[in-house]
Structure formats: C-alpha cells, structure tokens
Design a protein around this nucleic acid. Structure first.
Lengths: 248, 248
DNA sequence: ATGGCTATTATGTATATACATATTGAGACG
DNA sequence: CGTCTCAATATGTATATACATAATAGCCAT
C-alpha cells in the first residue's frame, strides 16, 4: 500500500510543499492532537511521508521552531513546546486612520509648540543621556467636532534637526516623522489614569474621568527620537490585540 | 589564491553566514542608510559580496521579506519597505508571575462560582452560536494583602468539560486552562473604565476610580474556550509592549 | 560501579544545481 | 503607433549532497 497518496485536498490551491508541511504540523499541534512534549516525527520520517528532500522538511521545521511552536534537540528530535506566555500583536495605527475608519472627519490642532534645552524630565522621558535641544508639542486630534485624543510629544532635535523648522500647526508630528525617520525600536506603555484638569479641559470631559494612556518611545539606530503620550477618553477607545500563532 | 579567507572578525562569535547577512541588511535599513524604496543588491550581487551560494542569500532575504522589512518583486529586485503601521508585541503574563516579579506573595481567592446554561450575554462574550453549559467564575488576585486584579471569567464547558469538576477555590482558572487546552487564537481588548461599586468594593478602591481592563477571548481549533476580564486599579498596572523589527 | 572513550544519530548549515514563474524590455509586425 | 511576442532576468521552490555539531547510548577499562 502506498504510504501517501498525494491527495489533492479540495480547495488546495497550489500551495508549496513547504507550506503544506508547515500548516499540517501547526494544525496537529494547535488542535491538540499532538500535545506539548509530544515528539514529532524525525526529519527523515517526514521526508518519507511527504516524499520530499530533507532540506524542505528542515526548512519547515526550522520555521516552526522560530515561531516557538516546537523545540528542536539534536540527537533527540523535535518536540511540541508548551505555551509560554501570551504574546499578542498589537497594531497601533495612525490616529487619522482610526478616526476615518469611524467615518468621521479628522482634524489635528496644535495647542502649543516650544523649543528648549532638554529639562531633566525631558531627558527622562526620552532616555537621553546628555542635555540638548528638544521640541515640545501639545495638540488635539478631533473626530468630527469632538476631541478624540490628546497628544503631548517631545522630539529630540539632535536626532531630527529638520523638525525644528516645522510648525506642526495642523499636521501631527507622528505622520511627519514616519517616512522621514526610520525607527528601529519602539516601546509602548499602556495604562489607565484619571483625567487631571488640564486633560479634562482639553478633551471636554469631567476631571477624574478615566482615560486610556498610550505612551510610545521611539529609537532610530540607538538614538532616542521621540516620546509621545496619547490620552484617550475611556469611551472613545479600545485597543485590540490579536494573537495567532505565527506560521508562514 | 584562496577563494575564502575565513576572516574571524573580532568579536564575531561564530555566527552563521545566514545570520550575518540578515543582520547586516537589517542594520542598513534600520539605520536609514538604505531608505524606503531603495533597491537592495540582487541576490547574485550579495552572492559575490558574501562569497556564498544563492540559496544562503535567498534564505536571508526571504526571512527579511516575511519580517516585513523588504518587499521582493520578481524580475525587479528587492526593495526596502516603508514602515506600515506600528505593530507591537504585547506579552501578557500570568498574573502570579507578575506579582512575584514585584517580590510580593501571590494569592488567588474565589469569590463566586456558578454553573449554568449560557445566557444571551454569555453567548455574546464567548461568541457562541448555540446555547450550552458554561462555568462563570469571579475571583481576586492578591499581591501581598492588597487586591491586585479582579477576574471575571466564563468557560465554555462544551469545549472543556473537565472544568465543570474543578472548584477553582484558590487556583485561578488561567493557569489551569493553559497546558490543558491548546489555544490557537486569542483576542485582547484593552481599555480604561471607571470602577463601578462592585469592582471598587472588590479592589478596595473608590467608586469611579480609573481602572485598566484587559479582556481576552480564547479559541482552540475554532471552538470558543473562555472569555476573561481582568480589571486592574490604575496605579497597579501598566502594560508594556515592545516593538523590535523581527530578525532571526 | 564509575569514569571516559567512541560510534551513532538528528539536527544545523552550506553548496551546486535545476526548473518554475512573474515581469519587463526590446524588437517584430500589423 | 500600438500591441504582440519572445527572450532575458530575478525571484521561488525543490533536490541531492556534504560536512559540522551536539547529545546520547553503549562499551571498555580501571
């Protein structure tokens, strides 16, 4: 009897063998058919099963290993890993996109613009070692007539000198920076706060009302570029993060 | 002359060629040396530069393409992509781990446990099509003597029948579920709320105080498994998400 | 028994090769 | 002048092969 009959599963539209091996195995793991700790077949066994070379199998398994689904041990084989910590991919979009996705007209309005030597607080926010020129901005993002988010931003002018010439009157610094400065790393901090008087006034909500705060620090090739703090009124905003075990 | 001189660059600790190509190119892109739109050298050029086979170069470039740093076009070459939307990886740990990382003793305490047929609300939360048995749990996570987080959970007993036999008196359902049920997909929603009387009472904070809410829905092989809502007092909790352009 | 040596085994990395496929550019032709 | 065809080109996928490396199992000598 033939071990495999290359069954052309209905609906299979010319996926590569490599993809097929990958999804077959992911499926077995995620469905629970192969529990954590289970030893998955050796490369040479899969080679026989899929009638392909070891390189092809190896590529698929290496990918699964990098994705964290399996763990490979020399001489012993490959094993299904137990889920570690929940890792979710959080997409943080441009606020304009978010607002327009709601079908509302978007507008940005600058509240303040200040160029100065970095204060101690600035340096802490930017994780800057030495003092230097920074640009401090404050502005509001509107969805229709209502304030959608408040933005408070610091830009390290040592890293982005051209920003010093920009007014940022009705364009937000975010989109301006993207495309101009390649960013290599970013850190987000997400938390809840009670609106202080200043924020409450800007967002037209009650002082003390809960707000979602997203802070982002961005580096480009080791240099701090910008620190920004978005404050959203609680009702207006939910962040959605999805986890789907990576595979191909 | 020798075709290859295996130059052991100082500080290079036996990384594979593949890794070296990968990090070289990432570095060029992330430092801005190669701006978005820039055409990176053809495979055969890199082959010459690194004195290696096309397969090795190809593997590295394919990986960069999957990571989203470059875009590959047949006949035209490979190009640096412009940054799309900010995607951050959010790690959501077990609460016990978080608490213990703070150096505080951890404790879980059940507040309520109720087994019932799913209500309309339950079905909405679980995204369940048909009615069936569910387990509703409510509990508190303590850091030392202070409440650290409030948990409200629904478990779909059709998917995890054994959960019906568990009391969950002093162990949280999260760790119990992990390891028992392989989960293939999860969705997180993060937002800020004002504490209602019930939450305020449980967490020992003022009604109306801002809280961070993390909701998670989990599926295993298409079947809804559980929906959980964690509520953290604002002071106690900040989510940190990091983006680092994936590479090897 | 205990320690150390060796052969075996599975994975890790790289090569040369082959053919498929999408896209483009140039030249032929109406 | 448009468009049609064909060859050239860069990437996509797969193969067979080779040698390196890490871990283990078994054996042997002390």
């Amino acid at each position: 009897m033939s071990i495999i009959e290359t069954v052309e599963a209905e609906g299979s539209e010319a996926v590569s063998l490599h993809q097929r091996i990958l999804s077959d195995i992911s499926e077995k793991i995620l469905s629970g058919a192969w529990a954590p700790g289970h030893r998955i077949p050796f490369e040479h066994e899969l080679t026989a099963e899929y009638k392909c070379s070891r390189m092809t199998v190896n590529k698929a398994l290496s990918q699964l290993a990098k994705a964290g689904l399996i763990e490979r041990r020399r001489r012993s084989g490959s094993f299904v890993r137990r889920p570690q910590s929940q890792a979710a991919v959080l997409e943080i979009h441009d606020i304009r996109i978010e607002v327009e996705a709601l079908g509302l007209p978007y507008r940005y309005q600058r509240l303040e613009r200040l160029q100065r030597r970095s204060s101690a607080e600035d340096r802490m926010l930017l994780e800057l070692a030495t003092s230097g020129p920074v640009l401090a901005l404050e502005g509001l993002h509107f969805a229709g007539r209502r304030p959608f988010a408040h933005e408070r931003r610091l830009i390290n002018l040592a890293a982005v000198a051209e920003a010093g010439e920009e007014e940022f009157l009705d364009i937000a610094a975010g989109p301006w920076l993207i495309g101009r400065v390649p960013w290599s790393e970013a850190e987000h901090r997400i938390r809840a706060i009670a609106a202080d008087d200043h924020i409450a006034d800007a967002l037209d909500i009650e002082p003390g009302a809960p707000c979602l705060v997203v802070e982002r620090r961005t580096w480009s090739a080791e240099h701090p570029v910008t620190h920004v703090r978005f404050t959203y009124p609680a009702e207006s905003h939910t962040l959605v993060a999805r986890f789907r075990p990576s595979q191909g």
